[in-house]
Write a protein that binds this DNA or RNA. Structure first.
Lengths: 184, 184
DNA sequence: ACCTTCTTGTAGCGACTGCTACAATCGGGG
DNA sequence: CCCCGATTGTAGCAGTCGCTACAAGAAGGT
């Protein structure tokens, strides 16, 4: 499909400049065509954006999978500590920017975005579960807590409070390791 | 200052319709004046938005303070469990929507928004600390972890994964309570 | 009364938005 | 060969955007 080629050509532009300022003519220029053609192929800007979201989500999950799981973590804390640097890699910054834009639109009630972010979050949830220790007594809840902390870290990073996020990771390690005397 | 009155008149419109679609003419209509006057008073739309962010942040923190701390929590888990329903109150939905919009702009590199969300997050951090148990052995780290989880819950709620957020809260209660035998 | 300064209304500019009408081009099947 | 559908270029429409030029009140000190 020609659509795929167009999406691949537009994706870098969107990752660099965001969705908010992405209007048809600049997008077309980035893809080497005209706004006329984008409408012709995608029908409307709304469907274009939906296709872009799909495409970028695919790229994001590929980027995650590219960080090979090596082997599952040995504890919940180790699981979290391994993932944090992954989501902080600079090459994912563009994707995270789009992520926040999409979440913002979802919170504003736009169904396309709500569906997209719901799916991506669900995918990420599964991805985290695969990195849990295999012998975790409650994998579902552990995944939920780790994902929650990861999302919180993204928010703190976005607001310039990365140091606070680091403190949280450190304390979680202290608390959740049932190995040594972590009783208060 | 007349500015205050204008901001107060525009705030409900922004909370209901978001910042993204807030252009001068609708804002002016909501405030009972003309776009001409908004520019006259605020100089430019950029300064208008900055003033609105300040004003809304004030309203948000007032909304938080209005949920009286009753008394500090008796454990970290109780602290978290008390705050979660507060940030989920429907009357804060508009503020949360603006919050995500602002974070998205901050992530996109706009300095006004970056400064605003950094300050609000810092304010929220302090607010959480005041609700911690007074005898917490490491208040700073505990606040960091609880704030991280709270931010993660907001993200999960925004993406339609509130149930996952609830699981995280439940597991945190189980893990962090150093009272009974929580050793794995 | 007069002049200055603050405030406000009317009208509009130039740039941009998503999208479309119209027509030219092209490739492949009859 | 010729026609027909798919693809593309040119030009432009109607609307919105932030912002401004111009001028008319309004208020108040001298």
């Amino acid at each position: 499909m020609t659509k795929e080629l167009l999406l691949a050509a537009m994706a870098p532009h969107v990752l660099a400049n965001g969705l908010a300022t992405a209007s048809l003519r600049p997008l077309a220029k980035a893809a080497g065509t005209s706004d006329r053609m984008l409408i012709y192929h995608f029908g409307s800007k709304e469907e274009l954006v939906a296709a872009l979201l799909d495409y970028l989500a695919q790229g994001f999950s590929d980027g995650l999978d590219a960080s090979r799981p090596t082997e599952p973590a040995r504890s919940r804390a180790e699981c979290l500590a391994q993932i944090v640097p992954l989501i902080r890699r600079p090459e994912l910054a563009g994707h995270l920017r789009i992520w926040f834009e999409a979440v913002s639109h979802a919170k504003a009630g736009e169904p396309n975005y709500a569906k997209a972010v719901h799916e991506i979050q669900g995918y990420f949830l599964n991805w985290v579960r695969l990195r849990l220790p295999v012998d975790d007594p409650d994998p579902e809840a552990a995944t939920a807590l780790i994902l929650t902390i990861l999302d919180g870290i993204e928010m703190l990073d976005a607001t310039g409070h990365s140091a606070t996020a680091d403190q949280a990771v450190a304390l979680f390690a202290q608390i959740s390791d049932g190995s040594s005397g972590s009783i208060s």
